[in-house]
């Protein structure tokens, strides 16, 4: 029984650590994006590691249908491996949604996901672009106001309260 428990624990720990092992395996390039949720028109930092010094990675932003070239990142030497840290601007007209950042050479590729939200500000030369200002204020909604519905809700609430009181006091 004790042996089985130990085997189970070893298996559990091994499974739990597997993704880490794969992500950090020496020689496999990895990238990370900061922040992972960004507004269109804002900057992201793409950080690469586990790379060969001197390599140049092409960085693209890939959506479900489109692929946007963001630029290149040159790998510099850092300890035994190479790495890069490059800042890119997400185009302001990028539709909000889920995207993949891909860093690729002819032989290697690494990806990380990023979620893009609506842009913070419109470009001055494009007045028609959406320009939601970040705001904590509640949205002013045209909530449908129906007297019949309100009366119905009040009657239902009163019946519910009355029935509830009757059941509690029985």
């Amino acid at each position: 029984m004790k042996k089985q428990l130990i085997s189970f624990l070893i298996l559990f720990v091994a499974l739990a650590l597997t993704p880490v092992g794969l992500a950090l395996a020496h020689g496999e390039p990895v990238i990370a994006v900061q922040p992972t949720i960004v507004a269109a028109g804002e900057e992201i930092i793409v950080i690469g590691a586990e790379m060969e010094a001197g390599e140049a990675f092409v960085i693209t932003l890939e959506g479900m249908t489109d692929s946007i070239l963001l630029g290149e990142a040159a790998v510099v030497e850092e300890g035994d491996d190479g790495s890069f840290e490059v800042t890119f601007t997400i185009p302001a007209d990028t539709p909000p949604g889920s995207y993949t950042i891909r860093a690729a050479t002819d032989e290697e590729t690494a990806v990380a996901d990023v979620t893009i939200t609506a842009p913070v500000e419109a470009h001055t030369d494009n007045q028609s672009a959406p320009a939601p200002e970040p705001s904590a204020a509640p949205l002013d909604l045209a909530r449908p106001q129906s007297t019949a519905q309100n009366v119905g809700v009040i009657i239902t609430a009163l019946v519910s309260l009355g029935l509830g009181l009757w059941l509690v006091r029985r």
Binding site: P35, I37, V38, A39, E42, T115, T117, A118, V120, P132, E133, P134, S135, A136, A137, P138, L139, L141
Partner: peptide, 9 residues
Amino acid sequence: LGQPGVAGV
């Protein structure tokens, strides 16, 4: 319900 969300703030 708040305004549409903007990241980074």
